[in-house]
């Protein structure tokens, strides 16, 4: 009996935390599946968006934060646009990614997290994203050197990726802004 009570307790706290972080009322979901039906990456997810909400309601925190689903979401917002209860799952997914990082749960789709990091680094460096150095950075982080090598070379040959990054004036300003915000 005791264990049942305990499950309910933890369950509620994860649901409350997810609600608070996302600002979305997840209790309203009645499993109509419109989100999953419209989701472009759902076929590749280990847990589909509608199931993810149900699992949050049930308090299955480790499974939710450890899922590939939260990293495969690209925030296209089709789910939120179609949800009859106005639950914006894109917002929820962002909140879950943050919670996963804070809890130290390794991203199941590791490469996507690494790409995000390489992207921010690229802005920190020069103010603008420079695809060539960003992708080299990403490749070093992910240690995946062969995927996209050929399309990358093609882009390079077509003059789509310039060799040298262009730096803007005011890089000091960008650096200062980053530092200020990181300190908060």
């Amino acid at each position: 009996m005791e264990s049942v009570v305990e499950t309910v307790k933890t369950g509620t706290s994860f649901l409350e935390e997810a609600k608070r972080r996302s600002g979305e009322d997840l209790s309203l979901c009645y499993q109509c599946l419109k989100c999953t039906a419209g989701c472009p990456t759902a076929p590749f997810m280990d847990v589909r968006p509608n199931n993810l909400i149900r699992m949050i309601q049930m308090g299955r925190k480790e499974e939710v934060l450890g899922s590939s689903a939260i990293w495969l979401c690209v925030s296209c917002e089709t789910c939120g646009t179609r949800c009859p209860n106005k639950i914006d799952i894109g917002v929820l997914m962002d909140a879950l990614r943050e919670m996963a990082i804070e809890e130290g749960i390794p991203a199941k789709e590791r490469n996507i997290h690494l790409l995000h990091e390489a992207f921010v680094q690229s802005i920190k460096r020069g103010g603008r994203v420079h695809e060539a150095t960003m992708l080299i950075d990403y490749k070093l982080r992910s240690r995946d050197f062969l995927t996209d090598l050929i399309p990358g070379m093609m882009l390079f040959l077509k003059g789509k990726i310039p060799l040298f990054p262009s730096f803007i004036k005011g890089r000091e300003e960008i650096k200062r802004i980053f530092e200020k915000c990181e300190k908060k």
Partner: peptide
């Protein structure tokens, strides 16, 4: 003049201010 990257994604998490700076 002197524009930077826009950040490329609008942060959906309510407390993520850093992504709004660019």
């Amino acid at each position: 003049p002197n524009w930077t990257c826009c950040g490329a994604t609008f942060p959906l998490a309510t407390d993520n201010l850093m992504a709004l700076l660019p």
